[in-house]
Design a protein around this nucleic acid. Structure first.
Length: 493
RNA sequence: GGCCCCAUCGUUCAGCGGUUAGGACGCGAGGUUUUCAUCCUCGAAACCAGGGUUCGAUUCCCUGUGGGGUCACCA
């Protein structure tokens, strides 16, 4: 039987980490886990490390990484060590640590904890199919386990493509000690021979994670409960390396209203979304804290510092809370009312203009006569949804059908997420992207551009389209294009 | 489906063997306010089920049920 080491009470300050994957908008789940890590670390004078898990070369982007930094900083969860701030245990990006993984995986190979596997993706697919047909649990069948290590080395040296897998014992069980839930015992037969090193030479999450946590001196791993199942693999890896595992804490997952794992489809999950709607970071953090954490004495309004001071694991519940923004709204309203007038004024101005005041003045000066015209003229740059009722008839260009419009708007919305220009959301980038988009989808600029104007502003007249879209900002544009889509769908015909 | 985790009002967090089961959000009813919002008061609203253990279970144990997670060369 293999066990993660039981209660080891360290006298050194704890070191914790969050390890987000830069593959999209900064997720509220990441912020949630970060909050608990941060509170625990600060409570005990420890260090909070930010490590970027970008071993998936296909999906990771630098812009996503930057967005994660921004979101965390906005919330006030500043890390002590990370890619941008440095530290004694770097580099803090896994893509810059690949040599370390290869080096370490060799010790696993040498002591038999891992083996090279030359099975082709085709064989694996067939195997999977067979297992499905036979109603067996899917999993690697150990085909390459018996290959002589020297022979395997020779084939690898000859350049034969292969991966490196964890050799999981056939019987017995592995015990994961979760400090929140107690012993979690899983039969080794249930654990797959996990791929540790992919054929492209990059590590999978499991390998990189264990090596990094150890090398970075992480003492407490505080993460979501979706990692429980792979916990035993990590325990096995620590054992394979002969390392002492950290203490594990698996927090409940944030849920949708239907209790499923919080997802984009059913909820806004980007921290940026809440930020752009004007929730205040302290309020948002307080709200996140009430999910799963309790101050006791029925107290639910508290600052980050108060949470840190009171932080105890006995105050953390293991169940997965529903992320219900109704309560967040209540908190936010109360906080607005509690602010002193000067602070509220500053917050309001900063949020409303978001650095755009000069831009809006430039965009409007040629189009207004009196000073008093300014606010009405730029009103559509503010707020979220707009009413498409008055412009309904102009939403569908001549010679186009409603379903074509829906299709093209949907495509545009999806593509601005993916394209680099869409991400940056600059005047030049948007124009270049939009023109290219037109040719690719066989729409004339003359048809699409007015449509974008109307969908983005709710008006038929506005300043230059791309300047307008850029000034509106990506979030607002997305929100409105979605609004226009909904409006179109709700219209008869 | 296998394995694993979880289980108190609609939601969230209390309760840690003996309580009229508490707070907040939301909801309902009043009141203050020219309106709305705020604010105040009151109210409805929960221990998943069945077995144990115990003098006594919401609380401890078991089983069931329900919900969730996970089963990739993604994290």
């Amino acid at each position: 039987m293999t066990e993660s080491s039981p209660a080891r009470v360290g006298t050194m300050p704890p070191r914790v980490r969050i390890a987000p994957s830069p593959t999209g908008d900064p997720h509220v789940g990441t912020a949630y886990i970060a909050l608990f890590n941060y509170a625990f670390a600060k409570k005990h004078g420890g260090s909070f490390v930010l490590r970027i898990e970008d071993t998936d070369q296909n999906r990771s982007t630098r812009s996503s990484e930057t967005a994660i930094f921004d979101a965390l900083r906005w919330l006030g969860l500043q890390w002590d060590e990370g890619p941008d701030v440095g530290g004694d245990f770097g580099p803090y990006r896994q893509s810059e640590r690949t040599a370390l993984y290869r080096e370490h995986v060799q010790t696993l190979l040498d002591n038999g904890s891992a083996y090279r596997c030359f099975c082709t993706p085709e064989r694996l697919a067939d195997l999977r199919k067979q297992q499905e047909a036979a109603k067996q649990n899917p999993g690697y069948d150990g085909h390459c386990r018996g290959v002589d290590p020297l022979e395997a080395q020779r084939r690898a040296d000859a350049g034969e493509p292969h991966v490196i897998r964890l050799r999981v014992p056939d019987d017995g069980e592995t015990v994961l000690h979760d400090e929140l839930r107690g012993e979690i015992r899983i039969a080794n037969a249930q654990i797959d021979d996990q791929v540790l090193l992919k054929s492209d030479g990059f590590p999978t999450y499991h390998l990189a994670n264990v090596i990094d946590d150890h090398l970075m001196g992480i003492t407490h791993v505080i993460r979501g409960e979706d990692w429980i199942t792979s916990g035993p693999k990590h325990v096995l890896l620590y054992q394979g390396f002969g390392w002492e595992p950290p203490l594990f804490f698996h927090l409940g997952l944030l849920r949708n209203a239907d209790k499923s794992k919080l997802s984009k489809r059913k909820n806004p999950v980007s921290v940026d979304h809440y930020r752009s709607l004007g929730y205040m970071p302290s309020t948002f953090l307080n709200f996140l804290a009430t999910l799963g954490f309790s101050m006791g004495e029925d107290k639910e309004r508290f600052s980050l510092q108060e949470m840190i001071d009171a932080f105890e694991w006995s105050r953390v519940s293991p169940g997965g809370p529903v992320f219900d923004a109704a309560k967040l709204d209540a908190f936010q309203g109360d906080d607005i009312r509690a602010m002193d007038p000067a602070a509220l004024r500053d917050a309001l101005v900063a949020h409303a203009f978001d650095g755009r005041l000069d831009t809006l003045i430039e965009l409007s000066r040629e189009r207004i006569t009196r000073l008093d015209d300014f606010i009405p003229y730029v009103s559509f740059f503010f707020g979220g949804e707009v009413d498409y009722g008055p412009v309904a008839s102009r939403l569908i260009p001549k010679k186009r059908e409603k379903k074509e419009v829906i299709k093209i708007l949907k495509a545009y919305l999806e593509e601005i997420e993916k394209s680099p220009e869409g991400r940056a959301f600059t005047v030049e980038g948007l124009e270049a992207f939009s023109r290219e988009f037109c040719t690719r989808h066989e729409w004339k600029a003359k048809e699409l551009f007015p449509l974008l104007r109307i969908a983005g502003t709710g008006r038929t007249a506005s300043p230059s389209l791309f300047e307008t879209l850029a000034a509106l900002g990506k979030d607002r544009v997305r929100l409105r294009l979605r609004g226009a889509l909904e409006f179109l769908r709700s219209q008869p015909g």
